[in-house]
């Protein structure tokens, strides 16, 4: 879904923004959990495969966490 990478980045940032009130550490975990639980694998793969440019710090942290868990698994 490379053509919609920008849209995925927007979605990830939007999720992160709504969890941000929990504080960065918790928000990163919550954002990663949300994307893991609700996104189709091709969407997760696409955002993990893409550049982090455009991702907020929390969203980037969440994607990094997903890269660690999903790819190691």
């Amino acid at each position: 879904m490379s053509g919609t990478h920008d849209r995925l980045v927007y979605m990830a940032n939007q999720i992160a923004r709504n969890f941000a009130v929990q504080g960065e550490t918790a928000a990163i975990a919550a954002t990663a959990r949300h994307i893991h639980d609700f996104w189709d694998p091709r969407m997760r793969d696409a955002i993990m495969a893409g550049e982090d440019a455009g991702l907020s710090d929390i969203a980037a942290g969440a994607i990094a966490r997903l890269r660690g868990t999903l790819r190691s698994g």
Binding site: M1, G3, T4, R7, D37, F38, W39, D40, R42, M43
Partner: peptide, 14 residues
Amino acid sequence: PGLRIPNMLDAAID
């Protein structure tokens, strides 16, 4: 999990 409707449409275009 699978695709939601808007994601289906995005994926169709892709």
